[in-house]
Simulated assay, not measured.
Amino acid sequence: MEAKLPDARPLINVCDRFGFVPDLTHYLYTNNMLWYIEGYVQKVNPGNAPLVVGQLLDDECPEDFIKGLILSVRSLLPIEPLVDECEKRNRLRLLTQFLEHLISEGSQDVHVHNDYISF
């Protein structure tokens, strides 16, 4: 991270492999490299999207970017960890549109329906 590489892909691979996803997200966000965050969540590891969302909330990222990121991953996103990350930060309302979208697509996931009802 200190090297300020022009291409963040090697950094993304190392951080993903060794579990430094929040640090990676903070670095990419503070260096205005949002397209790498999108690429990481959409193509590299959608399963870590809850960690990314949690860090973006901590960094006070605009909600529109976070909502777009969540919607871009859709059903690949693990619901329970995402709800946990948002709940820790008292930002569950952020997920309303996403959960409605999954329900309208016909999701039968118990967590989707339970978490939507709890709002």
Score class of each variant (00 low, 15 high):
T30Q: 12
R9N: 12
D16S: 13
I37E: 02
G47T: 08
W35N: 09
L28A: 06
I12F: 12
F18C: 04
N32W: 08
Q42Y: 05
L34I: 03
P10Q: 04
G19Y: 04
P10T: 02
G47S: 14
Y29L: 06
E38C: 05
I12E: 13
V21T: 14
D23N: 12
Y40R: 08
N45L: 04
N32T: 04
D23Y: 10
L28S: 05
G19T: 06
Q42C: 01
Y40V: 07
I37D: 02
D16Q: 10
D23T: 14
Y29S: 09
L24W: 01
Y27M: 02
G39D: 13
T30H: 10
L28C: 05
P46Y: 07
W35V: 03
N32Y: 12
E38D: 07
D16T: 12
V14N: 10
P22V: 14
T25S: 11
G39F: 13
N45G: 00
L34K: 11
N13E: 15
Y36R: 00
C15W: 01
V44K: 10
Y29P: 00
I37V: 07
W35E: 09
P46A: 05
R17H: 12
R9T: 13
Y40S: 05
Q42L: 07
L34S: 08
Y36G: 00
D16G: 05
Q42W: 00
N48K: 12
R9V: 11
M33K: 15
P10L: 08
M33H: 11
V44R: 06
Y27K: 00
P10N: 07
T25R: 04
T30I: 05
R9G: 02
V21H: 04
E38M: 09
N31I: 00
G19M: 06
K43M: 09
V14Y: 13
P10D: 11
R9F: 15
I12V: 15
Y40G: 06
G39I: 03
L24V: 03
Y40F: 15
I37H: 08
P46G: 07
L34Y: 05
G39R: 04
A8F: 06
E38I: 15
F20R: 01
R17G: 15
V14I: 15
